[in-house]
Design a protein around this nucleic acid. Structure first.
Length: 959
DNA sequence: ACCCTTCCGATTTTT
DNA sequence: TCGGAAGGGT
């Protein structure tokens, strides 16, 4: 592909090894070729060894590829390069800490040490588990932060925040914040003011109010603020005002955040301490300690610094990685290679500004690092920019299309920031340009895509470049279908399967942490040994309460229905049949269940696993959160389906970009967590708990609401994703959309191709290789140490204890709970959706509604209402509670949403129960009410009459 | 301005 | 389920 003789840009990069370089390397420009040759030039100098040169990559596989290609072109062999620092930032940091990291924590004031036995936790779910454990202890030790706990929706929110701060170089010390960390948390008013002014500019020469003022016309709507919030008119100015006052910017920005900062600080430092005590680090902490060490310890820094530093995929680096790269440079022989248009990893803390504002950031970071001591020596004004301009992959037409993509608005009115001035123009090297850029729209999008593929294969109109550069008709293997989400890819594969279409998914699926997998595991355990761990899950699912389950497990007196099902399963010939029956029983027929079925079947078929081993296999899958890697086998002549992220770095003759529908390229939202860090406004809290007034207790933070509206929604990364997708193509691109095409689809120039989807079923024999469209890799590696429970036992212990306590004080209290499935069923049935009853509870609902106001009897699974601190609590699975005393029946529906939202939907739900229950408890006074757990208030609901219910069933319309 | 109701969207993946 | 946003009525 890449010409062995470097072109001008590549040669400039390869030959100039001294000094500071920023290389713009667009798609298909032979970047890897140039970097590896440059590396060769560097280490082939007589006085330079591989250990003097750092080549940082983004992934391990990229590092491996680099090494292999260097070996091909230099005097060094693979063995000599085995230990060379050609690696990811993370693994390099790991190495630094292993060698010099023992006392690194002391620089933050921590007494703990990093030792050889300190592990790296590479599974986020295991870390989440550990963090939960940590946070539980933290809560007990720090009652002073109660107001923060009450607004947090989950501890995971804080872990996310900590990770983000770590990636930005904001670290805590035992005394406060490391270096200038606190200023990041406070934010940057000047930078904020600029954005504020930008959205506060009146429009139409001052005749129309600013975007911001318009946006705030609904200020306070659906919100509850504390009394210090200004009124809407105070905030926006009177009638006729065109923009917000200047003072508003300062007013919303400046907020007392001392308590918030100290809360976050304490959680952060204590979590670091916890991790070190437990002898582990996460990826972020690896970089955190490496950075601190390099900053504080001059000896280590000198030892660790390189004569040459090259960073590949620079657009994917985070702020801390940029700074680490600088600290690791002993000279200014520094070379960053990347393409801002391909920065699509912000969720992994990649910061596109590292490459877009390279010079500014370099100057800024160097100054920061040199604040108190001379650490790095860079002069940003000595920067040489190199542009790689020759594209060896795509035709000129594809390149033109990609340039359009990067500036295409994502919604009707969006103004795109990027302009083509920032895009380095590429020229194509393709042998010919017969490019088709087409678009198809059809309601049956999946079928339409498959039909299109059939149309393309073997068709000379879609010729691709053959081996000798001559055109040849395309085959299945030349085509890739890209999607934004995994889900869409799986759906497509599902449809393809129906037609025996040669199509293979390429990417990862977290298969085992799904309900179907857990239930299957439970039934396998029951089959194997009537294991309690299996029965508990099955019974809980049916709706038995904890004490009932305990009783059943003790006496082995299993209910007749599931026991019969177990016996039925025992008669199944194969594991596949068992799995299918279990999934059918619970109504799992979606694609995910099918993949699970496929996986189980193929693992069982292709290995010699016994049932017991299969159980262990699934258990490991759940414990490790195993992503089942599903890959196209290379030899198959089949279409590849993958997410755009997975496709980065790859190339295909023909690309179909599917699911170009409304909402499939979502805007980057400001996040929904209560406590968040945001550039440039710093650390902010969106909800505030306060008991000052009786109700409600949780208030919205008006400043946060205004601040958010000053930072516009961004589609920049979605555009870059689009760019990445298009630039994978060598010859042709097809956009596909369903019923509601998005703006990208509408705006991009493409020939509209009418389509009448009819997929020709293929002869399976012809594609025997593709028969099983994926292979499954058995999870490897050590089994995690976290004990795994399908049921959260602490919750049940808690419930049990409280039940005992309540029973002692209120022996009269009795209640009933329904499983949420019955709840859902009832609602669906009343609303005349097509549902078939599958258990006794559901059949009773059917009988009841069909025969209103007929008789209804419900067997009584009994439980007790649960009270904690005088408040009823919502416990997952118990949605509705019926509270029964001698002469009174209370039907209660728990809601966490305390301040807003209509009761109408709830009324429909509750009404069904109301009628069921009042039939049941003839002679008692029955009431229905909503219980708001946020503030403890309770509201009586007037249930629909039987007539209204009946009419609902008949008309199917809302009241 | 306030209240009630309905609608919409729940990513991506590597270290 | 559950928040955010927006539309409609008074």
């Amino acid at each position: 592909m890449t010409d062995p003789t470097p072109n001008d840009g590549q040669r400039e990069l390869i030959e100039n090894t001294k000094g500071l370089y920023l290389v713009d390397a667009g798609p298909g420009t032979g970047k890897t070729f140039a970097i590896t040759r440059r590396y060769g030039t560097i280490v082939d100098q007589p006085d330079v060894e591989p250990e003097d040169t750092l080549l940082a990559t983004f992934t391990r596989s990229a590092a491996t590829e680099m090494k292999e290609r260097i070996v091909d072109h230099s005097t060094y062999g693979l063995r000599e390069l085995a230990d060379a620092p050609i690696q990811t930032f993370h693994s390099h940091c790991h190495d630094i800490l292993r060698e010099h990291g023992y006392a690194a924590p002391t620089h933050l004031g921590l007494d703990e040490r990093i030792t050889d036995s300190t592990r790296l936790i590479d599974d986020e779910l295991i870390e989440a588990e550990l963090f939960r454990e940590f946070f539980g202890g933290f809560r007990d030790d720090h009652p002073e932060y109660a107001d923060f706990y009450r607004v947090l929706s989950s501890p995971g929110e804080l872990l996310d925040l900590i990770r983000e701060l770590a990636s930005k170089g904001v670290f805590p010390t035992t005394e406060g914040w490391y270096r200038d960390g606190e200023s990041h948390l406070d934010g940057d008013f000047e930078a904020f003011k600029e954005r504020f002014d930008a959205v506060n500019e009146p429009r139409n020469d001052g005749r129309k109010q600013s975007v911001l003022r318009d946006d705030l016309s609904r200020f306070g709507r659906n919100k509850t603020y504390l009394s210090d919030a200004p009124s809407k008119s105070e905030l926006r100015g009177g009638r006729g005002t065109k923009q917000l006052g200047d003072d508003v910017a300062a007013d919303v920005f400046h907020e007392d955040r001392e308590d918030l900062k100290s809360f976050v600080h304490d959680v952060y430092i204590e979590y670091l301490r916890f991790a070190l005590c437990r002898n582990y680090l996460n990826f972020g902490f690896l970089q955190l300690f490496a950075f601190v060490l390099l900053c504080e310890d001059r000896r280590v820094r000198r030892l660790a610094q390189f004569e040459y530093v090259m960073v590949d995929e620079f657009q994917d680096t985070s702020e801390i990685q940029f700074k680490l790269a600088l600290l690791l440079s002993g000279t200014d022989n520094f070379c960053a290679v990347g393409d801002w248009k391909q920065s699509i990893y912000s969720f992994q803390y990649a910061d596109v500004r590292n490459i877009l504002d390279f010079e500014d950031r370099l100057a800024q970071f160097s100054t920061d690092l040199n604040g108190d001591a001379e650490r790095v020596a860079f002069d940003a004004s000595d920067l040489t920019r190199i542009e790689l301009r020759e594209n060896y992959r795509s035709t000129e037409s594809i390149i033109d299309l990609s340039e359009r993509a990067i500036v295409t608005p994502a919604t009707g009115g969006e103004e795109v920031d990027a302009s083509l001035d920032d895009v380095v123009e590429l020229s194509s090297n393709a042998a010919f340009d017969n490019t088709a850029v087409e678009e198809i729209t059809h309601e049956d999008e999946h079928e339409a895509v498959l039909s299109t593929i059939q149309e393309i294969v073997g068709n000379d109109d879609y010729a691709v470049e053959g081996d000798g550069g001559d055109p040849r008709p395309p085959e299945y293997r030349d085509i890739a279908v890209f999607t934004r989400t995994r889900d869409y890819g799986r759906e497509l594969l599902e449809v393809a399967d129906e037609y025996d279409f040669p199509m293979a998914y390429d990417g990862g699926i977290e298969l085992f942490r799904t309900d179907p997998a857990k239930l299957l595991l439970a039934w396998l355990r029951i089959l194997d040994s009537d294991a309690d761990r299996g029965w508990a899950v099955v019974l809980e699912r049916i709706g038995y309460t904890y004490d009932e389950i305990e009783h059943i497990l003790e006496t082995d007196a299993y209910p007749s229905d599931p026991a019969a099902f177990r016996d039925e399963l025992r008669g199944s010939e194969s594991i596949g049949a068992v799995a299918r029956r279990v999934l059918d029983r619970y109504g799992y027929t979606d694609d995910r269940a099918d993949v699970l079925l496929h996986t189980i079947q193929s693992v069982y078929d292709s290995t010699t696993l016994t049932r017991g081993e299969l159980i262990r296999f699934i258990e490991r899958g759940i414990e490790n959160g195993t992503i089942v890697d599903v890959r196209a086998s290379a030899g198959d002549d089949s279409v590849t389906v993958q997410t755009i992220h997975t496709a980065k770095g790859l190339e295909y003759p023909i690309v179909i970009l599917a699911n170009m529908n409304d909402g499939s390229f979502p805007p980057r939202s400001s996040g929904s967590s209560v406590i968040q860090y945001q550039d440039p406004v710093g650390l902010r809290q969106r909800k505030i708990y306060s008991e000052e007034r009786p109700s409600p207790h949780v208030y919205d933070n008006w400043r946060s609401d205004v601040l958010r509206r000053c930072l516009p929604r961004e589609y920049d990364e979605e555009r870059r994703l689009l760019y990445v997708a298009v630039t994978r193509a060598e010859n042709h691109v097809v956009f596909a959309a369903g019923a509601e095409p998005n703006t990208f689809f509408e705006e991009l120039p493409a020939d509209d191709k009418a389509i009448d989807p009819s997929v020709e079923p293929l002869d399976r024999e012809e594609f025997t290789d593709a028969e099983l469209p994926f292979t499954v890799t058995t999870p490897q590696g050590p089994i995690s140490q976290t004990p795994h429970t399908l049921m959260d036992e602490t919750v049940f212990e808690e419930i049990d204890a409280r039940m005992e306590a309540t029973l002692e004080t209120e022996p009269e209290t009795r209640g009933v709970d329904f499983g949420s499935r019955v709840h859902e069923f009832a609602e669906a049935y009343v609303l005349d959706e097509e549902v078939t009853p599958s258990n006794p509870h559901e059949r009773r609902i059917v009988d009841f509604v069909d025969d209103l106001p007929g008789e209804l009897y419900v067997e009584e699974p009994v439980t007790l209402p649960i009270e904690i601190d005088g408040h009823r609590v919502t416990i997952s699975g118990i949605v509705d509670l019926v509270h029964v005393t001698a002469d009174q029946v209370d039907i209660i529906d728990y809601k966490t949403d305390g301040t807003r939202h209509a009761q109408s939907e709830y009324r429909k739900q509750l009404s069904v129960y109301y009628h069921v229950i009042s039939e049941w408890f003839v002679g008692k006074d029955v009431t229905a009410s909503l219980f708001y757990t946020t503030d403890g208030t309770r509201e009586q609901v007037t249930p629909l009459t039987s007539e209204e219910l009946r009419s609902l069933v008949q008309t199917g319309v809302e009241m």
